[in-house]
Computed example of a mutant assay.
Amino acid sequence: MALAAMYEVAWKRVAAAAITTPTSGDWVQVAFIIAATCAVSLPIGLQSKFFKWEPMKLATVIPAAMFTIIAPGFTEEAIFRAALLPHPSVNPKAFPASFSQFALTAALPLAIFVAYHLVNPDKRARAVFWDARFLALAALLGAGCTASYYVTGGSLVAAALTHWLPVNLWLFLLGGWNKVQPSEGTKKE
C-alpha cells in the first residue's frame, strides 16, 4: 500500500471514529473498562510506590484537566487507536468479530503507544516515562483504551475518556503531576 493511500485510510478511520456515537449500553461497558483499568493499575502503582497520595488543589486541577482531555486524551487516541486500528465503517472486513482477534490486530499499535512515551525531550518527564512501572501502567491503560474503542464500534470519544480519567487520577491525586512538572508549579492541598 502506497504511503498516500495509508494516510487516506488513517484519516478516514479518524473521521469515522470521531462521529461514532456509543449507545447507552456501550457507555456501561466503557464505565466497566475504566473501572477495571483503574482497579488493576491502582494496586500495581501503590505496591511499586509509583503512586503516592498527593491530591492537588482544585484551582490547579480544573485547567489542567481541561487540557488533558485534548492531550493526551483525544490526540493520542486519534493516533494510536483511531488511525492505526480498523474501523467498522471504513474497514468492515478488517474489523474482527471477536475481541481476541481485535487484540491481535491492536498488539502492534499498543506496542507503538508504549514506545512513544520513551521519546520525550523533557528530562524530568523522560525519567518518569522511561520508568518500567510507568511503561507497564501505560500498557494497561492502552489495553483499556483499545477495549473501549472495540466495544463501542470504534468511538474516539470513548477511547479518549478511557485514557483521560485514569491519567487525571494519576496526575492530580496519585503524584503524577509532581513527577512530570517542575517543582515550582506544584501546589498540594
Rank of each mutant, 00 (worst) to 15 (best):
A35S: 15
K123F: 11
W177L: 11
W27N: 11
A17L: 12
R124G: 06
F113W: 11
I70L: 13
L85P: 02
K49S: 04
L84W: 06
E189T: 13
I34H: 03
E184L: 12
Q101W: 00
V128M: 11
A64H: 12
L169Y: 07
F129V: 01
D26R: 10
L140D: 03
A65K: 04
F102I: 00
A78R: 10
W170R: 04
F99S: 01
T37P: 03
P182Y: 08
L58Q: 08
K49Y: 00
H87N: 14
T105A: 11
K57G: 11
L46Y: 10
Y116N: 09
A35V: 13
E54Y: 00
W53N: 01
P55C: 10
Q29N: 13
A125W: 03
W177P: 00
I44L: 10
G154K: 10
A160R: 06
L118H: 13
V180M: 09
F113R: 07
L169T: 05
A36K: 01
A103H: 00
L110N: 11
P86V: 05
A107C: 06
F51A: 01
Y7S: 13
H117Q: 10
D26Y: 12
L85Y: 04
P55Q: 08
P86G: 07
K188V: 15
I19F: 14
V28I: 15
T21I: 15
L171W: 07
A136Y: 02
A158L: 09
I34S: 03
S183V: 10
I44V: 14
S183E: 14
A158Q: 06
M1N: 07
T23L: 12
V28W: 11
A159V: 02
A16H: 13
V151E: 03
T21H: 05
P43C: 08
A16R: 10
A127Q: 09
E184K: 12
W130C: 11
A138V: 12
T146H: 00
T37V: 08
Y150H: 04
W130P: 00
A16Q: 12
A83T: 09
G73S: 10
S48E: 05
S148W: 05
A59Y: 09
K49P: 00
A147L: 13
V167R: 04
L171E: 07
A136E: 01
W164S: 07
P72L: 01
G45L: 05
I34Q: 02
G176P: 02
A2T: 15
V151G: 05
S24W: 13
G142C: 02
A106W: 05
W164G: 04
A5H: 10
K49C: 00
A103T: 00
F74M: 07
V180L: 10
L104G: 04
I69D: 06
L84I: 12
A132H: 01
A65W: 11
K93G: 02
A39P: 07
L156E: 06
Y7K: 09
A82I: 13
G73I: 15
W170G: 06
G45S: 04
G153Y: 12
K187D: 15
A39S: 13
T23R: 13
A31T: 15
D131M: 02
L85N: 02
G154T: 14
N120D: 12
L3P: 00
V119P: 02
A83K: 06
P88D: 08
P92M: 10
L110A: 14
I33W: 03
